[in-house]
């Protein structure tokens, strides 16, 4: 089994708070790896260290053998790591279709392209690709809507489309179903499962909804107070006494 992402001894301190304490993680290629844990366990902080938003105090994050620490967000994305944000981070003034075409163009053209005179409507390949992804997520009837005018659930789905359209090697999902209806959640699970199986994308998913976690994850890491307290296949996590203590026994 090849390792897609290897996290070694990552530490991050905010003032007096040790947000991440010697975190180690092995994510297998082509698998879905869930990170769970109580609020404030450091899950989002860890994800921020992967995408260049935060720089850890020490430790390395190796993606296919190359260290991601110290690289800029756009360089990390161009290396094949896409992130789906927890609170929708979309281009509110643009249309749904444009929101998805931007990451698709970034994937094809790289960090900068001075194509100032090429008409956007001639980019039919990019458009088709974006429409296909939006169709998968059931948003084909909202292509020309302004992103700002959509419901919270739709914004979450748009976020997902922006990540998926890049065909990343590693997809980071930060609570992808938060704010979605039950039906949309189930649809999202199906989409992610389908993509995981058909394209072999490695995924790291942070999630509070245990239904989502146990439907998708091949492996689960449990984070509590900045430390990984357990890493195992889903069946074994449920019965792990340390995990039960962290969630129920008041780790604080």
């Amino acid at each position: 089994m090849t390792v897609a992402l290897e996290v070694k001894g990552v530490n991050k301190r905010f003032g007096g708070l040790q947000a991440l304490n010697d975190v180690n993680l092995l994510v297998d290629e082509g698998r879905i790896h869930a990170i769970i844990g109580p609020n404030g366990a450091g899950k989002s902080t860890l994800l921020n260290c992967f995408v260049g938003k935060l720089k850890p105090d020490s430790g390395t994050v190796l993606f296919n053998g190359q260290n991601l620490i110290g690289r800029l967000p756009h360089q990390i994305n161009q290396a094949g790591v896409s992130r789906v944000f927890q609170t929708p981070e979309i281009f509110s003034d643009l249309t749904v279709l444009e929101n998805v075409m931007i990451p698709a163009l970034a994937h094809r053209d790289g960090i900068f392209e001075l194509n100032a005179l090429r008409p956007l409507r001639r980019e039919t390949d990019i458009r088709t690709k974006a429409v296909d992804v939006l169709e998968d997520l059931g948003m084909e009837d909202k292509l020309d809507m302004t992103a700002a005018s959509m419901s919270r659930g739709d914004k979450r789905r748009l976020e997902m489309a922006m990540g998926l359209v890049q065909e990343p090697k590693l997809l980071l999902l930060d609570e992808p179903t938060a704010g979605m209806s039950r039906a949309d959640t189930n649809n999202t699970i199906d989409v992610l499962k389908h993509i995981g199986d058909s394209r072999g994308i490695t995924m790291i998913i942070i999630e509070h909804d245990m239904h989502v976690v146990f439907s998708l994850a091949d492996k689960i890491s449990v984070l509590a107070q900045g430390t990984v307290i357990a890493e195992d296949i889903p069946q074994n996590i449920k019965g792990n006494p340390k995990v039960q203590e962290a969630y129920l026994g008041g780790a604080h």
């Binding site: 800029l72 756009h74 994305n77 392209e113 005179l117």
Partner: peptide, 24 residues
């Protein structure tokens, strides 16, 4: 009306998001 122009509009809309999308 170009892809370049769309990127400029995206900068106005959400500059930070653009860098997580692989654009400098």
């Amino acid at each position: 009306r170009s892809p370049f122009g769309m990127m400029l509009k995206a900068i106005k809309s959400n500059n930070e998001r653009l860098s997580y999308t692989g654009i400098s």
